[in-house]
Design a protein around this nucleic acid. Structure first.
Lengths: 162, 162
DNA sequence: CGGGAAAACGCAATATTATTTCGTTTCCTT
DNA sequence: AAGGAAACGAAATAATATTGCGTTTTCCCG
């Protein structure tokens, strides 16, 4: 039996080297394979094979450059708790589809604990934020909106604890 | 006058090619420079020079692999609204420093709009989450804690709208 | 409107890295 | 302990990154 068994597998199929690879790539996604291999203690070819396998397994979902929002003109980040007047599946899905179309929407989480959704949005300025908030209130089935403006972010870690 | 004026600059110093580079690298941070150059329509050397410059300017803050939390054993993601009994700078800073030490803390935002902080935490299971929540309540100056468990995330976009 | 310098470009050469090939080793199963 | 699958690593090849440099473009400033 192999670790490569077709498609989905989990943490049980990973050894220490795999976990090191994930940790290194989470920390620096543009490291060269030669350097990665050196850090995890194996030679380049098997290291590259492991990375490819982790990608195919879906454990590595992608690679992204992290940009500086403020320098690109997106100086406002805010969260919104949204309550709907119905929890029917179709209503929830409709809401998700609608806010996902907005380019300013960065995250949309369905939650349990007081309201129905927690969104994270970005805005170019205060007026832009106001417009977004007003638009949100006008969305069908939205009955409550509570905004939390981000003043400063002291901790923002990508990914998963490793 | 050059676009390279020492250190910090902003969107005003970027042209269309720079913005294309940022968009491509945000979407795929491990693309080769040759392919990146092809996509943005210039040859490889100036493309690499632009990427280096964007990095030095701080516009590109880093590159990260995006991992699959559930496959790595982190199946629970939740948000916590935290209220403190004081808004003195030292108290706020102490709280931030403490939660930043927890490996489960992914984000810590100081907010305006009802409470003092919005945290995002990850847990391996329900018991782990309970322990984290209880630990949070015991933290000095914490007087209110409201948990929002993420049921499903329908939208999660990295970075900035481009 | 012209110079003229600075900036950016792209070709070509070189250095590094990625990827394939393949023989060897390790590990697991029986 | 033998057989076989999986993984490893050295070496060769392919591709990419990076440097050097001459040319073109851009943009001031007279």
């Amino acid at each position: 039996m192999s670790r490569v068994a077709g498609n989905h597998m989990s943490i049980a199929d990973l050894d220490d080297i795999d976990r090191s690879i994930l940790a290194e790539l989470q920390q620096d996604g543009r490291i060269t394979n030669v350097e990665l291999a050196r850090r995890v203690g194996i030679s380049a070819p098997p290291c590259l094979r492991r990375v490819r396998r982790l990608e195919e397994m879906g454990l590595i979902q992608g690679y992204h450059a992290t940009l500086a929002p403020a320098m690109l003109g997106w100086s406002i980040s805010f969260f919104v708790l949204v309550g709907l007047d119905s929890q029917k599946g179709a209503v929830l899905a409709e809401f998700e589809a609608l806010v996902a179309e907005w380019p300013e929407t960065r995250e949309c989480h369905m939650i349990r604990g007081g309201e129905d959704f927690l969104l994270r949005l970005m805005a170019r300025d205060a007026e832009h934020q106001n417009r977004l908030t007003r638009d949100l209130i006008e969305v069908a089935h939205v009955v409550r909106v509570q905004t939390f403006q981000v003043i400063r972010t002291s901790c923002e870690r990508a990914g998963v604890p490793l």
